[in-house]
Design a protein around this nucleic acid. Structure first.
Length: 821
DNA sequence: GAGCACTGC
């Protein structure tokens, strides 16, 4: 897990507090220390200001951090702020061993909990170590660029319900804004702060708890800070500041459309533009403008919304919340199945509408050392070779310390360059420091990823060869040089074919700036771009938001489940093409998640509540039907399909053969789905040592632990939806032939579009769309000829492949296909 | 006989 470095690192900077600025850095020194390197440094043109758009700018005192911080920006070791940020003592770390199972588990009443039960929440009687920590951290907080803005931010939210806050890395916005707001008179309930990633939600909550001198989550009833991520809910009755992942908030919004437990929602990292953040913003805009909150479900107090973003794209966000009233009016008359259930009536329009000028904006400077940009004089085709040259150029020219972070596109280029670097490094003179090449990508086992945090051996420079993972998800310490190939792999959904492809594409300017910034987190740095300045200038300004390039069926089902019937007029920050939305609507209709009139069906409501794609949700609902009666088996299979790679990928031929042999007892001739079922069942039955079992069968233990979590969650949710009864949780082993057939027929109900039949020449063609597909070599059915197949995934990599394949009978498929045609 | 950027419920 990222985010849990308890100070073993040689540097005090841990990624778990990366949102904090932990350097005693001078916020102003940065400005002109670097060369006139890029067009993106607009910070100097933008004074620190906070204004409301309906009155004159109320300029606040300029960020005072620069006067408090040491003037020398290169002075990295200064006790003032580094020391308190170290996670030194275990006692100061408010983390208890936590159960990672089911969010619904009650917190265990421990001695510790009852001992603190009588504590007042004023803090005086809290344990001294928490208070000491809090007091230690206060000066650090005060030195953050956002600190002087506290009163202006509070004033803005007294006046207006919406605040758009732009703050760069290191401004402290994620940790401080909730603390500024929590004691405001209007803030009688909880504040939610969303994060795109689990680690960020958890580590920010820990940090804020420390800063407040509070317990965390379920540690104590008086705990004021908590977090909620999948499989891990650490909130208590008095949680006032709650960090959660975007997906978690969306789930809550389905259960409680008006968000009655919150006084404010802070949407952080909006610039990353995940699909979930786009949905949240649309729902919030409807909510604050009084749309689809009709009747009895109207809020008594207005919800405060704080939208936080790193890039200065304030205008579009302000416009988004100001305008678009036309589309919301259209939705006003729309039926809301959730509200209707309670006999609610649609509220008359306009009562809580956001009028122009009711939105505040705020800009806060970040803290970043200057980074010099170097472009290639000529464009190159072979950027692996260019990267190699530049790595050694840096290594020979630049003194230690200073690690190199290289951004590449994927595992293969990373491993290729790793080998090259190692080969060349062997031939270096003895008096030159060593080079240590470290790969970093998500599929790399956890222990291998952790190597980047280990301290560098004496006279050695690390070269981290990374994918996009290092752009946002992982902060690599010690980096002073960035090498950016200017490309990344992007998944694109092709509407017409209904398949996804993974393509290597040029990155956007904003991504290039993000990558470059990774060199200036601890000291001034350099960024070598493996493209020309002209190349940079021709890049798109921003990365295309995910919602414009993904399959929309899950998003649209979520919208429908939340009562947005007219999805074509949903307030999107960026509206997906109509074609993509219609494609998704049609798919949902085929899944019988929608009725013929386009309203959500009972079945659709159930599907929407599962943490699954609509196709997989549909399979579950089908499996629960009495005539199928194979829900537990379906849950096992779907859990395994929800994680990537249960079976380990082996490299050498020898190991592959070994694995084939060991797994033979798991393989089922019906195909991959039943093979997964057997694997999950055997793993679950294993009582002695599951880890050993995994090693023996070349199965990923980490993946299987995740499968078990998902399996448990799905079983619980099926019980809540009354699809499963309590006394029915013991799955039978080894499904009979009849049950195998039932399982595959359920799969067909979800994957109608992913079916193909064998042609006379032995190739396969999809029943819908008539596309040629081939069974992927990773399938147990590879090389076999069967009359028809159903498959989990349709992907294009040079050729159209079907992955996750099972054999079915043609007449089963025909029956399902005819039903929707 | 191929190959897989990254999140998340």
């Amino acid at each position: 897990m990222w985010g849990c470095t308890h100070g073993q690192s040689s540097k005090p900077t841990t990624q778990s507090v990366e949102k904090q600025s932990f350097e005693p850095k001078n916020g102003t020194k940065r400005k002109r220390a670097g060369p006139p390197n890029s067009i993106e440094d607009k910070r100097d043109e933008q004074p620190v200001k906070l204004k409301t758009s309906n009155d004159a700018a109320a300029t606040t005192p300029r960020n005072t951090s620069s006067s408090k911080a040491p003037k020398d920006g290169t002075q990295t070791s200064n006790g003032l702020s580094e020391k308190p940020l170290k996670r030194q003592k275990p006692e100061s770390s408010p983390q208890a061993p936590r159960s990672s199972h089911g969010a619904s588990q009650p917190s265990q009443p421990s001695n510790k909990t009852s001992r603190h039960r009588q504590h007042s929440d004023r803090g005086q009687s809290l344990p001294p170590h928490l208070l000491r920590k809090r007091d230690e951290l206060l000066p650090v907080r005060k030195a953050l660029p956002i600190w002087p803005q506290a009163s202006a931010i509070k004033a803005a939210l007294k006046k207006n319900n919406i605040l758009v806050l732009t703050g760069e890395t290191g401004s402290g916005k994620s940790t401080q804004v909730p603390q500024f707001l929590m004691n405001e008179p209007w803030c009688t309930k909880c504040i939610a702060i969303t994060q795109p990633r689990r680690v960020a939600a958890i580590s920010l909550a820990r940090r804020v708890a420390e800063e407040m001198g509070s317990f965390m989550g379920s540690q104590s009833p008086v705990a004021k800070v908590g977090y909620s991520v999948r499989f891990d809910n650490a909130t208590g009755p008095n949680t006032k500041v709650k960090f959660l992942t975007e997906g978690m908030l969306l789930q809550e919004m389905l259960r409680d459309p008006i968000m009655s437990q919150y006084s404010a929602v802070v949407v952080d990292e909006v610039h990353e533009r995940s699909v979930n953040v786009d949905l949240i913003l649309g729902f919030l805009r409807n909510l604050v403008s009084g749309v689809e909150t009709g009747g009895k479900s109207t809020r008594t107090h207005p919800l405060r919304v704080i939208v936080m973003s790193a890039t200065a794209d304030v205008e579009s966000l302000v416009t988004f919340f100001e305008d678009g009233q036309t589309s919301s009016k259209q939705e006003q008359g729309a039926k809301n199945p959730i509200a209707q259930k309670g006999g609610a009536q649609t509220q008359e329009g306009g009562a809580m509408q956001v009028k122009p000028g009711r939105i505040s904006t705020c800009f806060v400077e970040g803290r970043q050392y200057p980074v010099k940009t170097v472009y290639l004089p000529q464009p190159t085709q072979d950027w692996v070779e260019s990267a190699l040259k530049i790595i050694f150029q840096i290594h020979y020219k630049e003194p230690l310390p200073g690690d190199i972070l290289v951004f590449l596109t994927g595992q293969d280029t990373i491993e290729g360059l790793e080998k090259l670097v190692n080969d060349y490094a062997e031939g270096m003179d003895k008096d030159v420091p060593k080079l240590l090449a470290l790969p970093l990508f998500a599929a790399l086992p956890q222990h291998a990823q952790q190597r980047i945090f280990q301290s560098t051996p004496f006279r050695t420079r690390k070269v981290i060869l990374a994918t996009n993972i290092a752009e946002t998800s992982v902060t690599v310490p010690g980096v002073r040089f960035v090498v950016d190939c200017g490309k990344s792999k992007i998944k694109q959904f092709r509407n017409r074919l209904g398949l996804e492809s993974l393509l290597v594409k040029p990155i956007s300017k904003s991504a290039a700036i993000q990558r470059k910034g990774r060199a200036g987190r601890e000291a001034p740095g350099q960024c070598y771009r493996l493209y020309t300045e002209d190349g940079y200038n021709t890049m798109e300004e921003r990365t295309i938001p995910e919602i414009l390039r993904c399959d929309l069926s899950q998003s649209i089902l979520t919208m429908k489940a939340r009562g947005v019937d007219d999805v074509l007029n949903f307030p999107f920050l960026d509206r997906p093409p109509r074609e993509a939305m219609e494609k998704a609507l049609l798919q949902l209709l085929h899944l019988q998640a929608l009725t013929d009139t386009g309203t959500i069906s009972d079945q659709g409501l159930k599907i929407a509540k599962f943490p699954l794609t609509p196709t997989l949700g549909r399979v579950l609902v089908e499996a629960a039907k009495p005539e199928r009666d194979c829900l537990l088996d379906a849950i096992d299979i779907i859990s395994a399909l929800s994680v990537e790679n249960v079976f380990l990928n082996l490299v050498t031929e020898e190991r592959k053969e070994e694995a084939e042999e060991a797994r033979r007892e798991l393989y089922r001739r019906e195909g991959d789905h039943l093979t997964l079922l057997v694997t999950v069942q055997r793993y679950a039955e294993e009582r002695t040592d599951r880890k050993v079992w995994c090693e023996k069968h070349f199965v990923s233990h980490r993946a299987m632990q995740n499968v078990m979590n998902i399996r448990k969650q799905l079983q619980q949710q099926c019980m809540q939806l009354k699809l499963l009864s309590k006394d029915d949780t013991q799955s039978d082993s080894a499904p009979s032939e009849a049950r195998s057939q039932a399982i595959l027929e359920c799969m067909l109900r979800g994957f109608i579009h992913n079916t193909a039949r064998m042609m006379p020449d032995g190739s396969y063609k999809t029943l819908i769309g008539n596309q040629t597909v081939a069974i992927h070599p990773s399938s147990v059915l590879f090389g076999r000829k069967v009359e028809a197949i159903v498959f989990n995934e349709f992907l294009f990599t040079g050729k159209a492949w079907a992955r996750g394949v099972s054999a079915v009978q043609l007449d089963w498929v025909s029956e399902v296909v005819e039903a929707i045609m």
